[in-house]
Protein backbone atom coordinates (compact mmCIF):
# COMPACT_ATOMS: atom_id res chain seq x y z
CA UNK A 1 0.00 0.00 0.00
CA UNK A 2 1.36 3.42 -0.93
CA UNK A 3 1.42 6.32 1.53
CA UNK A 4 -1.14 8.11 -0.64
CA UNK A 5 -3.58 5.18 -0.45
CA UNK A 6 -3.01 4.90 3.28
CA UNK A 7 -3.74 8.60 3.67
CA UNK A 8 -6.93 8.41 1.61
CA UNK A 9 -8.28 5.48 3.62
CA UNK A 10 -7.29 7.11 6.90
CA UNK A 11 -9.06 10.35 6.01
CA UNK A 12 -12.15 8.47 4.89
CA UNK A 13 -12.27 6.51 8.13
CA UNK A 14 -11.75 9.64 10.18
CA UNK A 15 -14.47 11.44 8.27
CA UNK A 16 -17.04 8.69 8.53
CA UNK A 17 -16.31 7.15 11.92
CA UNK A 18 -14.85 9.86 14.11
CA UNK A 19 -17.94 9.71 16.34
CA UNK A 20 -17.03 6.16 17.26
CA UNK A 21 -13.55 7.21 18.30
CA UNK A 22 -14.90 10.04 20.46
CA UNK A 23 -17.24 7.66 22.24
CA UNK A 24 -14.31 5.45 23.20
CA UNK A 25 -12.23 8.46 24.22
CA UNK A 26 -14.96 9.84 26.42
CA UNK A 27 -15.64 6.47 28.04
CA UNK A 28 -11.97 5.99 28.98
CA UNK A 29 -10.76 9.49 29.81
CA UNK A 30 -12.51 12.02 32.03
CA UNK A 31 -10.50 15.22 31.85
CA UNK A 32 -10.30 17.00 28.53
CA UNK A 33 -6.54 16.84 28.75
CA UNK A 34 -6.61 13.06 29.04
CA UNK A 35 -9.18 12.93 26.26
CA UNK A 36 -6.80 14.86 24.00
CA UNK A 37 -3.99 12.50 24.87
CA UNK A 38 -6.02 9.36 24.29
CA UNK A 39 -7.55 10.73 21.09
CA UNK A 40 -4.10 11.40 19.70
CA UNK A 41 -2.93 7.93 20.68
CA UNK A 42 -5.95 6.31 19.03
CA UNK A 43 -5.49 8.36 15.86
CA UNK A 44 -1.86 7.21 15.65
CA UNK A 45 -2.83 3.58 16.08
CA UNK A 46 -5.62 3.89 13.51
CA UNK A 47 -3.13 5.35 11.01
CA UNK A 48 -0.69 2.52 11.65
CA UNK A 49 -3.45 -0.06 11.33
CA UNK A 50 -4.58 0.99 7.83
CA UNK A 51 -2.16 -1.33 5.91
CA UNK A 52 -3.20 -4.32 8.07
CA UNK A 53 -6.92 -3.90 7.35
CA UNK A 54 -8.01 -6.88 5.22
CA UNK A 55 -11.76 -6.23 4.93
CA UNK A 56 -12.54 -9.47 6.74
CA UNK A 57 -14.29 -7.31 9.32
CA UNK A 58 -16.29 -4.13 8.81
CA UNK A 59 -14.49 -0.81 9.25
CA UNK A 60 -16.58 -0.12 12.36
CA UNK A 61 -15.55 -3.42 13.95
CA UNK A 62 -11.93 -2.79 13.02
CA UNK A 63 -11.97 0.73 14.48
CA UNK A 64 -13.61 -0.46 17.68
CA UNK A 65 -10.93 -3.12 18.01
CA UNK A 66 -8.11 -0.64 17.51
CA UNK A 67 -9.57 2.12 19.67
CA UNK A 68 -10.63 -0.13 22.56
CA UNK A 69 -7.27 -1.91 22.65
CA UNK A 70 -5.49 1.44 22.57
CA UNK A 71 -7.73 2.87 25.28
CA UNK A 72 -7.18 -0.12 27.57
CA UNK A 73 -3.41 0.05 27.10
CA UNK A 74 -3.44 3.82 27.56
CA UNK A 75 -5.45 3.50 30.74
CA UNK A 76 -2.91 1.07 32.13
CA UNK A 77 -0.10 3.48 31.40
CA UNK A 78 -2.07 6.25 33.11
CA UNK A 79 -0.36 8.99 31.22
CA UNK A 80 -1.29 12.19 32.88
CA UNK A 81 0.84 14.77 31.21
CA UNK A 82 2.97 15.61 28.23
CA UNK A 83 6.63 15.52 29.26
CA UNK A 84 8.54 18.66 28.53
CA UNK A 85 5.51 20.81 27.93
CA UNK A 86 4.44 23.78 29.97
CA UNK A 87 0.96 24.38 31.33
CA UNK A 88 0.21 26.68 28.40
CA UNK A 89 1.20 24.01 25.94
CA UNK A 90 -1.15 21.47 27.39
CA UNK A 91 -4.18 23.71 27.06
CA UNK A 92 -7.02 21.62 25.81
CA UNK A 93 -7.02 20.92 22.11
CA UNK A 94 -10.53 19.51 22.16
CA UNK A 95 -13.05 21.89 23.64
CA UNK A 96 -16.76 21.64 23.94
CA UNK A 97 -18.80 23.08 21.10
CA UNK A 98 -21.66 25.47 21.78
CA UNK A 99 -24.25 22.68 21.71
CA UNK A 100 -26.09 22.35 25.04
CA UNK A 101 -24.98 19.24 26.95
CA UNK A 102 -27.37 16.40 27.59
CA UNK A 103 -27.14 15.74 31.33
CA UNK A 104 -28.48 12.22 30.89
CA UNK A 105 -25.64 11.47 28.50
CA UNK A 106 -23.12 12.87 30.99
CA UNK A 107 -24.63 10.61 33.62
CA UNK A 108 -24.40 7.60 31.29
CA UNK A 109 -20.73 8.26 30.55
CA UNK A 110 -20.04 8.64 34.26
CA UNK A 111 -21.63 5.26 34.93
CA UNK A 112 -19.73 3.63 32.08
CA UNK A 113 -16.51 5.11 33.42
CA UNK A 114 -17.16 3.48 36.81
CA UNK A 115 -17.08 0.02 35.21
CA UNK A 116 -13.84 -1.90 34.92
CA UNK A 117 -11.91 -1.60 31.64
CA UNK A 118 -13.28 -4.76 30.03
CA UNK A 119 -16.89 -4.10 31.07
CA UNK A 120 -16.51 -0.61 29.71
CA UNK A 121 -15.55 -2.00 26.31
CA UNK A 122 -18.43 -4.50 26.42
CA UNK A 123 -20.86 -1.67 27.25
CA UNK A 124 -19.64 0.47 24.36
CA UNK A 125 -19.98 -2.45 21.95
CA UNK A 126 -23.43 -3.31 23.33
CA UNK A 127 -24.64 0.26 22.89
CA UNK A 128 -23.13 0.34 19.40
CA UNK A 129 -25.33 -2.63 18.49
CA UNK A 130 -22.78 -5.43 18.18
CA UNK A 131 -24.00 -9.03 18.52
CA UNK A 132 -22.73 -11.30 21.31
CA UNK A 133 -20.73 -13.24 18.73
CA UNK A 134 -19.04 -10.11 17.37
CA UNK A 135 -18.33 -8.86 20.89
CA UNK A 136 -16.82 -12.20 21.87
CA UNK A 137 -14.56 -12.14 18.82
CA UNK A 138 -13.54 -8.53 19.45
CA UNK A 139 -12.85 -8.96 23.15
CA UNK A 140 -11.31 -12.41 22.93
CA UNK A 141 -13.76 -13.92 25.42
CA UNK A 142 -16.50 -16.53 25.04
CA UNK A 143 -20.05 -15.66 24.01
CA UNK A 144 -21.38 -16.99 27.31
CA UNK A 145 -18.95 -14.76 29.17
CA UNK A 146 -20.18 -11.81 27.11
CA UNK A 147 -23.77 -12.76 28.02
CA UNK A 148 -22.95 -12.88 31.73
CA UNK A 149 -21.22 -9.53 31.58
CA UNK A 150 -24.03 -7.90 29.63
CA UNK A 151 -26.70 -9.14 32.03
CA UNK A 152 -24.74 -7.76 34.93
CA UNK A 153 -24.05 -4.44 33.20
CA UNK A 154 -27.69 -4.01 32.16
CA UNK A 155 -28.91 -4.69 35.70
CA UNK A 156 -26.36 -2.29 37.09
CA UNK A 157 -27.27 0.47 34.66
CA UNK A 158 -31.02 0.01 35.23
CA UNK A 159 -30.54 0.15 39.01
CA UNK A 160 -28.39 3.27 38.77
CA UNK A 161 -30.83 4.89 36.35
CA UNK A 162 -33.64 4.43 38.87
CA UNK A 163 -31.59 6.21 41.51
CA UNK A 164 -30.79 8.91 38.97
CA UNK A 165 -34.52 9.32 38.11
CA UNK A 166 -35.45 9.47 41.81
CA UNK A 167 -33.00 12.29 42.42
CA UNK A 168 -34.83 14.17 39.69
CA UNK A 169 -31.66 15.31 37.94
Amino acid sequence: MTKKEQKQIFEMWLGQHKGLLFKVVRAYAISTLDQDDLFQEIIIQVWRSVPSFRQEASVTTWLYRISLNTAIKWKKKEQKNYPGETLDDVQQVLHESGTPRDERLDWLYEEIYKLDEIDRSVTLLLLAGFSYKEMAALMGITESNVGVKINRIKKQLITKSKKYDNHGI
Binding site: V93, H95, E96, T99, L108, K154, Y164
Partner: peptide, 30 residues
Protein backbone atom coordinates in the same frame (compact mmCIF):
# COMPACT_ATOMS: atom_id res chain seq x y z
CA UNK B 1 -35.61 3.72 33.30
CA UNK B 2 -35.20 0.51 31.28
CA UNK B 3 -32.24 -0.46 29.15
CA UNK B 4 -34.03 0.73 25.99
CA UNK B 5 -34.14 4.21 27.53
CA UNK B 6 -30.42 4.00 28.24
CA UNK B 7 -29.89 3.04 24.62
CA UNK B 8 -32.00 6.01 23.48
CA UNK B 9 -29.89 8.38 25.62
CA UNK B 10 -26.77 6.89 24.04
CA UNK B 11 -28.14 7.29 20.53
CA UNK B 12 -28.91 11.00 21.02
CA UNK B 13 -25.21 11.81 20.63
CA UNK B 14 -25.12 10.46 17.08
CA UNK B 15 -26.47 13.74 15.74
CA UNK B 16 -24.90 16.01 18.34
CA UNK B 17 -21.71 18.01 17.68
CA UNK B 18 -19.95 17.92 21.05
CA UNK B 19 -16.36 18.83 20.38
CA UNK B 20 -14.50 21.36 18.33
CA UNK B 21 -10.79 21.86 17.84
CA UNK B 22 -9.08 24.64 19.74
CA UNK B 23 -6.63 25.60 16.99
CA UNK B 24 -4.70 27.97 19.21
CA UNK B 25 -3.99 25.18 21.69
CA UNK B 26 -3.08 22.81 18.88
CA UNK B 27 -0.66 25.39 17.49
CA UNK B 28 0.95 25.74 20.92
CA UNK B 29 1.35 21.99 21.11
CA UNK B 30 2.97 21.91 17.68
Amino acid sequence: MEFDDVQRIWDTQNSMPLYAINEEALHRRI
